[in-house]
């Protein structure tokens, strides 16, 4: 009967696709269904807090030093004695990660002496603007109860029409800092109540004045 099996041999291949029906689709309907990530998944960073709400970051800049992609920018500042932000001597008052450069190697996590920066399972970081890819302290810092600030763009003017109806909505939507004199941290945006207030006349500005001699 070898001639019969020779004859039917090519037809056996027709059963292969039929068997796939029982297997079912391997497709995941992504926006609705998200895969559970592995435990040590290298996702977006967060800046953590102690249980009492104090920030863990002490502005030591070790993460910035160890970063192979040079994507972290940290500035430390002495804690105000009456209302300290972190338990240490200093706190990181500027903390920026450029996600366009970040390679998600988690060297910053290893370098951090206080475990202030860790990685999460968050992975949706698409932006419509290159400036939006620079995550600032406000976006990276977890909430008081420890939930990561996520997603950063959910409430942004581009997705929230109510925001767009506010006076400076469109300006903030098209230029994320909301101000032309943007110098590295998100400036004070009245309707969103984020960022830092510009300095009053006669005060020293909270905004770092990036110049050659200051940063060296």
């Amino acid at each position: 009967m070898s001639w019969l099996s020779d004859l039917l041999g090519p037809l056996k291949g027709f059963l292969v696709p039929l068997r796939q029906i029982r297997k079912g689709p391997v497709t995941r309907k992504y926006p609705q269904v998200k895969r559970v990530k592995p435990q040590r998944f290298h996702g977006r960073h967060t800046l953590n807090r102690y249980p009492n709400g104090m920030e863990k970051c002490i502005g030591c800049e070790l993460c910035a030093g160890v970063c192979p992609a040079n994507c972290i920018y940290v500035r430390g500042k002495d804690n105000p004695p009456d209302n300290p932000v972190s338990p240490g001597e200093r706190w990181g008052f500027v903390y920026e990660i450029n996600m366009l450069r970040c390679i998600f190697c988690a060297m910053c996590v290893e370098a951090c002496p206080t475990q202030a920066i860790t990685m999460t399972h968050l992975f949706e970081m698409s932006v419509t603007n290159r400036d939006d890819a620079i995550y600032t302290r406000t976006e990276l810092l977890v909430d008081r109860d420890g939930t990561p600030n996520y997603p950063p763009h959910e409430d942004s003017p581009l997705t929230n029409l109510e925001e767009l109806r506010k006076g400076d909505g469109w300006m903030r939507a098209t230029s994320p800092s909301g101000r032309r004199e943007y110098e590295g941290i998100v400036a004070w945006t009245p309707s969103a109540r984020t960022g830092e207030l510009p300095a009053e006349r006669g005060q020293s500005s909270g905004t770092p004045q990036v110049s050659e001699d200051a940063d060296g």
Partner: peptide, 11 residues
């Protein structure tokens, strides 16, 4: 054809 190819197809 998507059933036969482990896909979902138009939905």
């Amino acid at each position: 054809v998507s059933d036969l190819q482990n896909r979902i197809g138009p939905d």
